[in-house]
Structures are given as structure tokens and as C-alpha cells.
């Protein structure tokens, strides 16, 4: 399209970029619960709090599983989703979830400290990580949408699941709901993770700046277009700046309320970053490099 800026066509009969519009809030929620659930589980295993591990597992299955089923046009046929793990990432995630849940339950059933327990603990940890990452591959597996088609995504999913898990824990512990032997200082972990995620997101978006025109169009929608207010508001201001400020200047000492706020803010940012990444998924113009 010689020297012409490619228009955003949407439904109009015009050659231009088109926005993905079939994977929206329910997929975003599924990812959200998936990450927070697995994150909680992983931390719970590390901190050895079986109850919370169980809760993580529940969030994973009920939250993510539920959202996925609601997302389906034909929920009553959900069981068909498992039929093609060899090629379809959706099939795979369902399998991974199932297997992981099985292992996790076994791990929780084992007598603490027994060698089997030790063994399953390792397996469960691996499973947790796997669950967190596979969702990333669902998005990453769409070459049609350059924005998603990068190995950065599964990585981001993992980072966010750890952060998600941590902040929930952070809340539970300093909110005084559960007592754990603090092998790790949750507060610093939280802070560090927020910063790492911030960097992760920054690097990811920066990497798009000189990607294909289509990916840049996604970036434009996110940073300057239709969705920029949502992005700066929920993801940047609430998700990063507020959480960081609160953890650094008040932190755990701020008491249950502050801790709750930090966690809430973090989860809001968490949900919106991936929700928005879905919404700004843009396709290249149909005829690709066809010019006039």
C-alpha cells in the first residue's frame, strides 16, 4: 500500500488492519485464574501450606476451567476439547491441567516428609510451572496475530503467575490469616517480583516497537489508541506504580488494609494486562504485502 497509512478496517469492507474480537473477557479471566491459581500453588508448596495449595488448585480448576467452559459457544460439548493434544494447544492445556491436578492431589494426600511426598512435591512444582506457562502458548501459537506470536509471552505468564501467587500470599500472611515460617521475606519477594514484571512488560512492549507494522498497530492501540486509558490506568498506575509505592513506603507494616490494597491493585493490573493484550490483537491486512 504505497505510502498510504493502512486504516483500521474492523468490519468495514476495506483493506486494512482488523482487531481480534472472539477471545475476550472469559479467556482473559481463564488466564487470570490460571496464573494466580498456579502461582499460589507453587508458593504454597514451597512454603509448605497444604491448605493454600488446595485453594490454589481450586482456583485453577474452578476459576480457569469454569471461565473456559463459559467462553465456549457450546459448553455442553466441552469434553470434545481434549481430542487433539498432538496439535492443538487448547487440548494440551486441558490435559496439562488434568494431569497437574492429579499429581497435586496425590502430593497433598501423601504423608508429609515421606520420600513419595518429596517426589510428588517436585512433580507438582513442575506441573504448576507447566500450567502457568501453557496458557502462554495458547496465545503464542497464533502466528496470525504478531503481537502474541513471541516467546516472551509464556515467560510473562510465568512471571505473572509467580507475582500473582506471591501477592495473594502476601495478603494472607501479613493479613494474619495464615501463619507460615517465613523462609522467604514475602515483602521483598513481592517488591522484587513487581519490578521484574514491570521490566518484563517493558521489554516485551519495547521489543514490539521495531516489529512488524501489524504488531506496531497493536502497540499503538494499547499506548496511544482506543485502549491507552485502560492501559495507563489499570495496568501502569494501579498495577505497577500504586503497588510499588505501597510496598516500598508502607508495606507489611501498613497493616491488613494496606496489604489488602497492594494485593487488590496487583490483581487488577494482572487481569487487565492480559485482557488488553487480547483486545489489541491485530491481524495484518488480508492480502499481506499486496500493493497497488
Amino acid at each position: 500500500m504505497t505510502g498510504q497509512t493502512v486504516p483500521m478496517a474492523d468490519e468495514e469492507f476495506v483493506m486494512g488492519f482488523r482487531k481480534q474480537n472472539v477471545w475476550t473477557k472469559w479467556i482473559a479471566l481463564a488466564f487470570f485464574f490460571g496464573k494466580v491459581g498456579s502461582g499460589m500453588f507453587i508458593l504454597a508448596v514451597l512454603l509448605n501450606t497444604p491448605l493454600i495449595a488446595l485453594a490454589g488448585l481450586a482456583i485453577e480448576n474452578v476459576g480457569k476451567g469454569g471461565s473456559l467452559i463459559i467462553h465456549l459457544g457450546r459448553p455442553e460439548r466441552f469434553w470434545r476439547a481434549v481430542s487433539r493434544p498432538q496439535s492443538s494447544w487448547i487440548s494440551r492445556t486441558v490435559w496439562v491441567m488434568g494431569v497437574f491436578t492429579l499429581i497435586a492431589l496425590l502430593y497433598l494426600a501423601m504423608p508429609q516428609g515421606s520420600p513419595a511426598w518429596q517426589f510428588f512435591k517436585v512433580l507438582a512444582l513442575i506441573g504448576g510451572v507447566a500450567v502457568a506457562i501453557t496458557d502462554g502458548f495458547i496465545m503464542n501459537d497464533s502466528p496470525a496475530i504478531p503481537l502474541w506470536n513471541t516467546p516472551m509471552l509464556p515467560f510473562l505468564f510465568l512471571l505473572y503467575s509467580l507475582l500473582g501467587g506471591t501477592s495473594v500470599f502476601f495478603f494472607l500472611v501479613y493479613g494474619g490469616w495464615v501463619g507460615v515460617t517465613p523462609l522467604i521475606d514475602l515483602e521483598t519477594l513481592e517488591t522484587v517480583l513487581i519490578i521484574i514484571n514491570l521490566m518484563g512488560v517493558a521489554i516485551y512492549l519495547a521489543s514490539l516497537a521495531n516489529a512488524t507494522a501489524t504488531a506496531r498497530e497493536s502497540l499503538r492501540l494499547l499506548l496511544r489508541g482506543q485502549y491507552s486509558t485502560m492501559f495507563y490506568g489499570f495496568v501502569v498506575a494501579i498495577g505497577f506504580i500504586l503497588t510499588l509505592a505501597l510496598t516500598l513506603f508502607l508495606g507489611a507494616s501498613g497493616g491488613a488494609l494496606v496489604v489488602g490494597l497492594i494485593t487488590l491493585a496487583d490483581l487488577i493490573g494482572h487481569f487487565f494486562i492480559f485482557y488488553l493484550l487480547l483486545l489489541v490483537g491485530v491481524y495484518a491486512p488480508v492480502t499481506g504485502k499486496l500493493t497497488i
Binding site: 482488523r18 481480534q20 472472539v22 477471545w23 467462553h71 465456549l72 459457544g73 457450546r74 460439548r77 466441552f78 470434545r80 476439547a81 492443538s88 494447544w89 487448547i90 495458547i138 501459537d141 497464533s142 502466528p143 496470525a144 496475530i145 490483537g281 491481524y283 495484518a284 488480508v286
Partner: peptide, 23 residues
């Protein structure tokens, strides 16, 4: 009869040639 309406295909089609037939 087999489609579960997950829309993965709709997302995957680089040409956006698929659509969900909504309720």
C-alpha cells in the same frame, strides 16, 4: 455437530475468515 465454539480457529485464521454464529 463437533464444534465446541472455542473460537481458536477464528483467532488462528490470519485472514479473519471465520466467525462465531452467536446465540
Amino acid at each position: 455437530d463437533q464444534c465446541i465454539g472455542c473460537k481458536a480457529c477464528a483467532v488462528a485464521c490470519p485472514y479473519k475468515n471465520r466467525e462465531l454464529l452467536p446465540q
